[in-house]
Amino acid sequence: MTDYQEYLGFLYSALASQNKKNIELTESTHLVADIGLSSLEVMEFIEKIEDHFDITIPLNILPDVNTIGELAKKVRELNP
């Protein structure tokens, strides 16, 4: 079973290569507004999380997710 902190830790490390502005990544960092991910990059990032944890994350969650913390929380909810 994966907990919130474990998801969060993976999100930080997986986003490092896409953090072109080199900003500090926190739970409140916005995936689009702060890091600058395109919609395509967001979907590819979701696939990366799915493959790492071998879980399913429907794209439907995207409208409700803005920050790294929200994404970690949502993934945790979907895979209790």
């Binding site: 696939e47 879980i55 399913t56 994350i57 429907p58 794209l59 439907n60």
Partner: peptide, 23 residues
């Protein structure tokens, strides 16, 4: 549709199979 939407990698049946298995 309001169904759960999952993307599989373009033209990649192995990726599709992996996602079907997870379901």
């Amino acid at each position: 549709s309001d169904a759960d939407i999952i993307r599989y990698k373009h033209n990649d049946p192995d990726d599709l199979a992996k996602r079907m298995r997870r379901l």
